[in-house]
Design a protein around this nucleic acid. Structure first.
Length: 533
RNA sequence: GGGCUCGUAGCUCAGUCAGGCAGAGCGUCUGGCUUUUAACCAGACGGCCUAGGGUUCAAAUCCCUACGAGCCCGCCA
């Protein structure tokens, strides 16, 4: 039986295994920018970064790279694209126009926000764009080899996948110079010396393209070719590539038998499931984009979500209330004074440099934000009164923005409250004692100077003390029996919440009241005490 | 059809590689903070470790079978 203190974090296990093979490592990660890059994709990058950091932590000579598959074809007209994109289906993403018209191309449109997110997550890989790699000639030698060993490669694929590749199959897909598409061409021949490939296209065009930039290797060959070209030694990938007969299986053999390169150490990771909706996927529309998430939670919490779970376990992700618990858990871990080695590793791996911290818990801000009705000046006042550090206003603003976005985008109804414009109809349920309390409470507040949260709090509780000013005021109200009157502060709190929010409960009453205008409270409590439906 | 991964408290998951008393956080309940109902603290409740078989002095852990969830064998992480 192992105790928590003895558990080794998965990233350290991976790094340890990798170090047995070599001290120099290139951790690779890659995503096809065919649509909005979502939380699921983020797992790939964060997993790679974790392995990278763990390697550095163990003294390895390590590098992290990211390859954007910008040369892959546009598969179909995705739901978020206009119908006019039908003509671009089949063209490499780097040659398809940008949907917003402001980026260099289609791939760039989705990569830009993704790189922004990487920056926030504290991940700084060396970036390669696949189309540039091909155009630079980096792949040329690998393409020549693949074309020359076409039959061997086809054999490997047939053996591993138990399928039969077509007779006209080629590891290389030329881009038609006529229609610009990459998935409609057939290779008819090649010239190793001139480094060119001949093809025909279903559009009727035929011609010759250079190996550098004139097309790309098919995925199952591209991947192992890339390992050798860049020197990849560690790579995380989704479980889709990992199963028997999948591209890692064929890649392993192609890498070894065709390119003579040792297979990178694999990190297979599971999918992120969104609530009860199932796996995250661009095509089914079950998607939460990374940029959306970063509007809502600090980057470190997002890292923590992935770091704390072993890659082979699926992650149940729910941006509603469970997200709040996640944030809470992370904050607690972060401020814990005595931590185990395991926890220390988790914190290190979750850390994103350049992120500012406030000492205000996310959950608390959820209440402050709503009490302040989203007004930043009021938020700052409440925060100061609550005794938090207000030196870093920018940080607090960021947190407040996150919370505001969360409330708007994901918060479940019961986490929300709003100060009602008029006396809520629920005031009809107030008892005689509650009304008497509200009336007396209103008078006393009116006569007092500025009250602090604690003052309000103590004032409410004083209602049960027979010799208090509030208690005698209540007893003297018409309709309330004098003499032995038992007052339960709980009912008084309820009366307060009903008059202001129209609900039975609410945020801690003292400072909640102190965050609202005094005049408003005086008027509202009086109105509620005389409420007639 | 063939294969991969996962299944542990109401929820999210450690623990499985290397067998040795069933664990944590959240939630719930109770109490405390010489009285803050959504911030704090303590305690309690909570389990056929998906089911069945096998190996073993000993199984959540190893082996076999079944069931459930997700995925792959066609370029969706």
């Amino acid at each position: 039986m192992k105790t928590m203190a003895q558990i080794t974090h998965w990233a350290d296990v991976t790094a340890g295994e990798a170090l047995k093979l070599s001290n120099k490592h290139l951790v690779a990660t890659g995503i096809t920018p065919s649509g909005h890059i979502h939380i699921g994709n983020m797992r790939e990058v964060v997993t790679a970064d974790a392995a990278f950091r763990a390697l550095l932590g163990k003294g390895a000579d390590a590098e992290l790279i990211y390859i954007a598959d910008t040369f892959d074809p546009l598969r179909k007209v995705y739901p978020f694209l206009p119908e006019s994109y039908a003509e671009h289906v089949g063209k490499p993403l780097s040659q398809v126009p940008c949907p917003c018209g402001e980026c260099k191309n289609y791939a760039d449109h989705f990569l830009k926000p993704f790189f922004g997110a990487l920056e926030k997550l504290g991940i700084r890989p060396k970036v390669y764009l696949a189309d540039e790699l091909y155009k630079s000639g980096a792949y040329t030698q690998a393409i020549k080899t693949a074309l020359a060993k076409r039959d061997e490669i086809a054999n490997i694929i047939d053996e591993v996948t138990h399928k039969t590749t077509a007779d006209d199959w080629s590891p290389f897909n030329p881009i038609c110079t006529g229609c610009g598409k990459i998935n409609t061409t057939k290779v008819t021949g090649f010239d190793a010396d001139a480094e060119t490939v001949d093809y025909t296209c279903s559009c009727g065009h035929s011609g010759t393209v250079p190996m550098s930039g004139g097309g790309k290797l098919t995925w199952r060959v591209d991947w192992p070719a890339r390992w050798g070209i860049l020197g990849v030694t560690v790579e995380p990938f989704g479980k889709d590539h990992a199963s028997r007969g999948g591209s890692y299986d064929t890649g392993k053999r192609i890498s070894r038998e065709i390119y003579g390169y040792k297979t990178p150490y694999p990190i297979v990771y599971e999918w992120i499931m969104l609530g009860k909706k199932g796996a995250m996927s661009s095509s089914t529309g079950v998607v939460v984009s990374i940029s959306d998430m970063l509007k809502v939670v600090p980057a470190e919490v997002l890292r923590y979500l992935i770091i704390r779970t072993k890659p082979e376990k699926h992650i149940q992700f729910d941006p509603a209330l469970p997200l709040l618990n996640l944030v809470d858990e992370y904050e607690k871990l972060h401020y814990k004074t005595e931590i185990t080695e395991y926890e220390s590793t988790v914190i290190k791996l979750s850390h994103a440099s350049g992120i500012c911290h406030t000492d205000i818990p996310f959950k608390h801000m959820v209440t402050i934000y709503q009490a302040a009705r989203g007004d930043i000046d009021r938020i700052m006042k409440i925060v100061a009164r609550a005794g938090y550090n207000t030196d870093n206003e920018k940080c607090i603003r960021e947190l407040a923005e996150n919370v505001g976005n969360w409330l708007e985008m994901y918060a479940p109804p019961f986490a929300k409250f709003s100060v009602q414009e008029e006396v809520p109809v629920h005031a009809a349920t107030l008892t005689g004692v509650q009304k008497a309390f509200l009336s007396a409470f209103s008078n006393i507040i009116n006569e007092s100077g500025e009250l602090t949260g604690e003052d309000y709090h103590n004032l409410v509780y004083s209602a049960k003390e027979a010799d208090s000013k509030l208690h005698s005021a209540i007893v003297q109200m018409p309709g309330v029996g004098a003499g032995e009157l038992e007052i339960d502060p709980k009912d008084m709190f309820k009366a307060i919440y009903i008059s202001i929010l129209g609900q039975q409960s609410g945020p801690k009453a003292g400072w909640f009241l102190s965050s609202l205008e005094k005049d408003f409270l005086v008027r509202r409590f009086m109105d509620a005490s005389t409420y007639k439906p």
